[in-house]
Structures are given as C-alpha cells and as structure tokens.
Computed example of a mutant assay.
Amino acid sequence: MDIDQVRRDYLQGGLQRGDLAADPIEQFELWLKQAIDAGMQDPTAMTVATVNAEGQPSQRIVLLKQVDAKGFVFYTNYESHKAQDIALNPLVSLHFPWHALERQVKICGRAEKVSAAESLKYFSSRPEESQLAAWASAQSRPVSSRQLLMQQFNAMKEKFKQGKIPLPDFWGGYRVVPSSIEFWQGGANRLHDRFQYTRTETDGQSDWLIERLAP
C-alpha cells in the first residue's frame, strides 16, 4: 500500500496570540467545549504516555473525567501497566487529537493520585456495570479467554447484588499537574500555529509563559 502521498491541507482557520486566554486551563476548557459542541466523537478521549523501568514509552487512550486549575484527572486500575510506570516515573504526557477541528493539545506534567474521597465520588457515579467491571478485570494482566472474564464479571455481580458496590482499593484516579500545555491549530502549507504555555515560578508565585513555536 502506497501511503506517502496521503495528505491534506489544513484550512479551517489560524490561531493568533491575541486569541489565547492568559491561563491555559481556561483556553483548554474553551477548546474542549467547542469540540463537544461540534459533535465530535469522544472529545474527552486522550492519549496518556508513560515510560517504564527500561525506558520504553507506552501509550493508551483513556477518558478525561475532570479538569480544573489543579490539573487533568483520569481513572484506572492502580495495578495496571500505566500505574506501574507512574509509580516509577510520574512524568507523563497527555494528547488530545481533535482532528475534525484541525486541533491538537499536548500536556506535559506530573501524575499524582487523587484522594480516596475523590475516587469514591467518581466511582459511585459510574453505571453499576462499570463498577462491577472494575472489580472483575485485573487490568493489563493476561486472561485466558473472554469467557473467563465474563465469569469473573458475573461472580462480582453475584457478590455485590445486595447494597452499594464498594470502591476497590486497587482502583482510583490520577491528576496530571501540568508544567506545559501546547495548543496546535492546523495551517495552510504546513505552516501550523503552535503556542506553548510553560509554568514559571517567581518569588513563590506561579505564572504561565506563552511562546509561539515554529511548526
């Protein structure tokens, strides 16, 4: 298959310094809302990149569940591959590929566990089947068949058929506290617009430096 000529131009619009909010979280929330309003499929889907003990990068797609001034939150099994990577090296990268709007957002930062109270609040808001799946799946570990996975799911369904399903002690959230956030808008002739916010500290005060990057 010949793919070297698969390309298109990006003509939906540019991005200027004056278009940007002073705070990158505010800018991100604006772009996220526009992605949702545009009817994009899975607008909260993001790639999470980690590095293991051997220095091997790994990526997977998860869903953003909260964003605020403190950072970007997602939930997972604390015994999964990504969690093991984070335990060794909490520096991670997030990526939002909003192709329909010819936009990308890249976030670099440090992942830290959210409180048990935050994890419980979110866990309790999930559909019951999703709560049971968290108990049934030993995420990232080999499983011999889907039949066995469904047996484990049904066993958890029977176990917790009375009352609320408790939060597993091996499941919870991570908050990625950003050190830099880049906003990318596609441009004609591959002259894309890129702006990077970098967190700076001056006299104990945190602020954001905004720079245009060459495409």
Rank of each mutant, 00 (worst) to 15 (best):
T76I: 02
H192T: 06
S179Q: 13
E29R: 13
E29D: 12
R7S: 12
A136T: 09
P43E: 09
Q205T: 14
A136Y: 03
G109D: 03
V105Q: 04
H81F: 11
F195P: 00
F123K: 03
L30H: 11
V114Y: 02
L132E: 02
A111D: 05
L32I: 04
I25W: 04
F160K: 06
M1T: 11
I86D: 02
L167Y: 00
A117H: 10
Y10A: 12
R146M: 09
N52W: 07
S179R: 02
S179Y: 05
A155D: 14
A38T: 09
G39C: 12
E128I: 13
G71E: 05
V48F: 04
K106W: 03
T76R: 01
P43S: 12
P166H: 10
T200I: 14
R17A: 13
A21L: 11
R60P: 06
D169A: 11
E79D: 15
K113S: 06
W98Y: 11
Q56G: 05
R190L: 05
L167Q: 05
I181T: 02
L149A: 13
H95R: 05
Q12P: 02
V6H: 07
T44M: 08
Y10Q: 13
A38C: 12
Y78N: 05
A100W: 00
Q41I: 09
E118L: 09
P168K: 09
P24L: 07
K106D: 01
A45G: 14
V73N: 00
I165V: 15
A87G: 08
Q151R: 12
P166Y: 08
Q104P: 01
Q27C: 11
N52C: 11
Q152T: 04
T44L: 10
G18M: 05
T76Y: 01
V176E: 01
K82E: 06
Q12C: 06
T198M: 09
Q84S: 15
E54D: 15
S179N: 13
I165F: 08
F123Q: 01
L148D: 12
G163H: 10
L209M: 11
A138N: 13
Q151N: 15
L94T: 06
L120A: 12
L88Q: 15
A155S: 14
S144L: 10
K113T: 03
E211R: 15
Q147M: 08
K106F: 08
S124N: 12
Q34V: 03
E129C: 11
D203S: 15
D42E: 15
V73A: 04
M46V: 07
S119E: 01
V143Y: 01
Q59D: 04
W135N: 00
A38H: 14
G204N: 10
K157V: 02
R194T: 08
R103K: 14
S137L: 02
A45K: 07
D68K: 10
F72T: 01
A133Q: 08
Q152P: 02
E128V: 13
A111R: 04
L167E: 03
E112P: 03
A35V: 06
R110E: 12
